[in-house]
């Protein structure tokens, strides 16, 4: 690289002069780097969240149907007193927990196979095989389950000769479809967690006389638990806020459905905003517990 003569600074391009200006001024560089992304996220995103949170304290005038811009906790009172809202919160959290457990149980054997049994080549192929359905269109996957669970669908056709019938549309279908949708989010962190356990530890356990199941129970499970919690962050939070799957495969109301109905049909944004704080609060609490359990290092 030729050094430019110091006598011709005027001919330097704007870019070059800017580079000189930035040279060694790390605070200025940092400010330039951060202003764009932080500006966007703070203004467009956190600003919007603040607007929504403030709206939770407004209320809908029952007679005129317009939003009254004055502070009140009416919405939270309505939600707290309404038995139906409590049932819906319980149902949503319950399904989210059930889906999380289901996915953890299904994920463990395949993750263990990938981490400790499969050859490197097979492992690579399995990772891609799990990533592809994860990224395939959410909506199309739910729709595919509609086709499968349908009265005249493939499941009833397959079970028919055995004298059995599929679950049809309903809460069971919701559980099944959610478990399907979020399964890859559980497999991948559990696989990564198992991969990190040194094989020598398992061998040592075996040498000391533990049978495989005992090794799994007393050595593998405690070590892989933070990774399961990491996976559960996805399975739990994604279930908590979803309203499309319940709408497509059941008639049951979940938190998301109530929020959506209040924004759209009832045009009651304040109540919707207030109810939307429930999954946010649950999720923040969940994240705090997850962090304490060491899940963040496993993400």
């Amino acid at each position: 690289m030729a050094v430019e003569p110091a006598t011709a600074p005027a001919r330097r391009s704007v870019g070059r002069r800017l580079a000189d200006l930035l040279h060694g001024r790390s605070r200025v560089q940092l400010a330039l780097l951060l202003s764009g992304p932080l500006g966007w996220l703070l203004v467009a995103y956190l600003g919007s969240l603040a607007v929504l949170f403030v709206a939770a304290f407004w209320r809908l005038d029952d007679f005129s149907g317009t939003i009254v811009h004055s502070w009140s906790t009416t919405n939270f009172q309505t939600l707290w007193d309404g038995q139906v809202y409590r049932t819906i919160v319980g149902r949503t959290v319950g399904i989210a927990a059930l889906v999380t457990i289901t996915d953890a149980v299904i994920a463990f054997p395949i993750a263990f196979y990938m981490a400790k049994v499969a050859s490197r080549r097979t492992r690579g192929m399995l990772i891609v095989a799990i990533l592809m359905p994860l990224w395939a269109s959410y909506l199309v996957k739910v729709y595919a389950w509609r086709q499968i669970l349908n009265e005249e669908g493939i499941l009833n056709w397959a079970l028919g000769p055995l004298g059995l019938k599929g679950p049809g549309f309903g809460v069971v279908a919701t559980w099944l479809v959610f478990s399907y949708l979020w399964l890859p989010y559980m497999i991948l962190p559990v696989y990564a967690g198992l991969e990190r356990i040194p094989n020598s530890l398992l061998d040592a356990s075996g040498d000391l006389g533990a049978r495989p199941w005992r090794t799994v129970r007393t050595v593998v499970f405690p070590l892989v638990f933070p990774a399961v919690v990491a996976g559960s962050i996805f399975t739990f939070s994604l279930t908590l806020g979803d309203y499309i799957t319940p709408q497509l495969v059941s008639n049951t109301q979940f938190i998301g459905n109530v929020v959506y109905a209040n924004v759209g049909v009832a045009n009651n944004l304040p109540l919707a905003a207030a109810f939307a704080t429930v999954p946010v609060v649950v999720m923040v609490a969940y994240l705090l517990v997850a962090r304490r359990l060491g899940a963040f290092e496993q993400l």
């Binding site: 919007s48 969240l49 979803d242 959506y260 999954p279 999720m283 994240l287």
Partner: peptide, 14 residues
């Protein structure tokens, strides 16, 4: 990380 419906509503209202 936050439910899509929260992000959606927040952006919509602003």
């Amino acid at each position: 990380a936050l439910p899509g419906i929260v992000t959606g509503m927040a952006l919509n209202s602003s």
